[in-house]
Amino acid sequence: MAERLLDVTGLTTTFRTGKKTSVTAVNNVTFSLDRGEILGLVGESGCGKSVTSLSIMGLFEDTAGKVASGSIVFDGEDLTKLTTKQMRSIRGKRISMIFQNPMSSLNSCMRVEAQLIEAIRLHNDVSKSEARQRASKMLSAVGIPDPEQTLRSYPHQLSGGMSQRVMIAMALCCEPEMMIADEPTTALDVTIQAQILELMKDIRSRNNTSILLITHDLGVVAEMCSRALVMYAGRIVEEASVEELFASPIHPYTVGLIASVPKLGSGVTSLPSIPGSVPDLSAMPQGCKFAPRCKYAQAVCRQTEPELAPVPGGNGRKCRCHLFGKEEGKEAQA
């Protein structure tokens, strides 16, 4: 059995919206990540997948957001209990992050070399020239053809794919045990996306790095991950191995989501879609959050919220639905 690296339990993150009001962006999220595993976190915009990653990184200082309850245990240490200073020695060193938009995540007024050297020297006691050498090595490791030239460049002189490689090099330069990739390829073209995904797989197998891959693209999940979590309205609605998730999705939302993605080469001319849209965080429906859009919804769904329950005989598989296991009811409705 693989070694456990991260255990998130009951994570709830809220954002203050007024003097006494707040919205809950992430609600009672529980999951774990093993060493060397690529875990997918899928969902549509506003479902809380990025807020989950920011909670793990502790990036809510001086913002309206805060981790209201729950624990994030990373390698035996609860990150929510650490001081800012202690957190700083983990962030970037043991857990690093790749953001969606490489252009706006790099400092546009600093040369690439200065940014990489800064990241390396913050966590390692090395001289500037050693750090520069290491930066150059990192850049060639992420497939940049001319590292010396790139080191001297400013971010605006690099293409999107190149900047994302620099971001990945920066995330890797302290050999982290875990990487959070928040939509790492969404801003890139498909041919460049394919390059970056290959690179991430390669890093995983070389360094046994765990990757939490946040994306809205089910195709990317199917190709990269071994396990995936599906989020809806701040909650995990289904957890399963990728094979099971795509072969036999259980939660009606997952079913609808997978069906609504056009598949290349399938020749379909119309798509099943999920009616309605995602509920507003400040006006959540009572009961199951998906009930207003669910064609199987019954009275119980509208009144009480279902728990994320293990699926019998499902090998760690979980689902948040009242109707699961009561197939008769589903069929009667359908």
């Binding site: 053809p145 498909v190 041919t191 394919a194 199917a222 795509f246 997978i258 993605v261 598949k263």
Partner: peptide, 25 residues
């Protein structure tokens, strides 16, 4: 051919031969 092969397919049972393009546009 490269463009089509680069599109991720939402089906983990499909393993296709990918043509990786070198470099940028």
């Amino acid at each position: 051919q490269a463009l089509l092969s680069a599109v991720p397919i939402p089906d983990p049972t499909v393993h296709k031969e990918r043509i990786l393009l070198e470099g940028d546009i």
